[in-house]
Simulated scan of single mutants.
Amino acid sequence: MNKLFKKLLITATAILSVICYSTSVFAAGFDVNNDNTVNVNDVTFLQNEISNFNDNTDYDLNNDGRVDVNDISTLQIEISKNDIETIEKNTKLSVTRNEYKQCVGDTVTFSITTNNAISDFTYSSSDSSVAKIVSTDSNTVKVKVNKVGFATVTAKQCSQSVSVRFSVEKAKCIDLSEWNGSIDFNKVKKSGVTCVILRAGYGKDPNQEDNEFQKYYKQAKAAGLNVGAYWYSYATSVDAAKAEVKNCMKTIQDKEFDLPVFLDVEEYRQAVLPRRTLTDIISTFCDGVKGYGFDVGMYSAKSMLVDSAYPDELASKYLIWMAAPNNSYNELTPFVDIHQYSWNGKVDGISEKVDMNYIYNLNC
């Protein structure tokens, strides 16, 4: 076998491993050795004929008026196409689960099983706001569910496809600080809570990290909970908000969160500021943290957000987490993504009363 033939064979094999063709029809003229089968034996036969300077025009497979190595290439490619067509027709795809029922904030990773050696898959989501494809690796796909609703993730190979349906419900969430004391996060998880938002710290001055943040973060992650963070703000100016960003980042910059980082705005000194000023303070903090690669949002009571800032402007850019224990979610404005519905919750694994929330949407 000479170098050219080896190169053609390697090229055709590479095509076979990664590409699916839709159609390929063999003409009788490709059976150059007349054994009623078109396969690699025809390539060998044609190679020998050309090596013996046979100029039989029946071997001019690419119809260029001469018999040469280009005809070997044409034959090999046609054989590869036929093999690939056979693979495509027989391709079967499957998944271990065809449906997932998840809560907002969850991440699911699943694999596609195929009966062939083709490595290429394409993935799509019917609604990426509900089920977002985060990453793919060969036949494995990671999906993050970000909103209440339904979506289908489809994997396709050749002309075959398999779909997985996602049914996404609101997530039960608690927010915690050092005041909540000792917590058994495994019991919290078993109680039905899927998300926790931890106070990372407060203000702009050094040494204002929440005393339990590091421990809570490790334990919540180990328990399999989806974790986010919030920073309690005292800022009354844009410059103070910038300083709070720096202080916050000292605490969280090495953390991996499943949920956003929120600015907690509830001080009276902030409520009496001009609406433009408070809105700019919130935007400065959120944009600053977002610049470090985190998803962001802001938390406040219903009255403060509506009366002391420009909520529509903020909601167009950031997630809105609203404290409104006296209202049902349906009574709130449509831009509310997370509803804090109680300040007196009771959760297994926590002895103190705890804030209770429902997360409906995590799409900024």
Rank of each mutant, 00 (worst) to 15 (best):
I281R: 09
V306D: 14
N344R: 14
S159H: 12
V245L: 03
D71A: 00
T13A: 14
S124D: 12
S283Q: 15
Y230I: 01
T279S: 01
V18P: 11
A131K: 01
Q157V: 06
F110K: 08
Q340R: 11
V272I: 09
N41C: 05
N116L: 00
T284M: 03
Y341T: 00
F262G: 06
D137S: 14
K89A: 11
I77F: 13
F110A: 02
D60N: 08
K172S: 11
D312G: 13
D175G: 01
L61S: 07
W231C: 00
L198E: 04
P274D: 11
K317A: 03
N327P: 15
N48E: 11
A243V: 04
Q214P: 12
S308V: 01
D31W: 03
N211E: 15
V261W: 08
A309E: 08
S94Y: 09
F213Q: 03
I338M: 10
R276A: 13
D295P: 10
D287A: 02
T11N: 15
A155H: 06
N139G: 09
P260L: 00
A271F: 14
V69E: 12
E49Q: 12
P274H: 10
V347D: 08
Y232R: 09
W321G: 01
G181R: 12
N54Y: 05
A301G: 15
T194F: 04
V238H: 06
V265Q: 09
V145K: 04
E331R: 12
F185P: 05
R275P: 09
C248K: 07
I350D: 10
S111H: 08
K101S: 09
R276E: 14
V289S: 04
N39W: 00
D71M: 00
N63I: 07
K81G: 03
L93V: 03
I320V: 09
D127M: 00
Q214T: 15
F335Y: 15
T91G: 08
V162P: 07
D280S: 12
A323D: 04
N357S: 11
P260E: 08
I72C: 04
G288R: 07
Q214I: 09
S129L: 11
N36C: 03
D42K: 01
Y217P: 07
V245H: 08
M249S: 10
Q47T: 10
S119E: 14
G149V: 03
A240V: 10
G288T: 00
E209T: 06
Y310R: 12
K81A: 02
C158S: 12
Q76M: 13
S316C: 11
Y217A: 00
L46N: 03
L8A: 05
A241H: 07
I133L: 02
A12V: 05
I77R: 15
K101G: 09
A171H: 09
K81P: 07
T152Y: 03
I350H: 14
H339T: 01
K142C: 04
K81R: 12
T279P: 01
C103S: 14
D280N: 12
E85T: 13
C20G: 14
L314Y: 07
G201A: 01
N207V: 00
I79K: 05
T154F: 04
A200T: 05
Q102L: 12
L9E: 10
K92L: 11
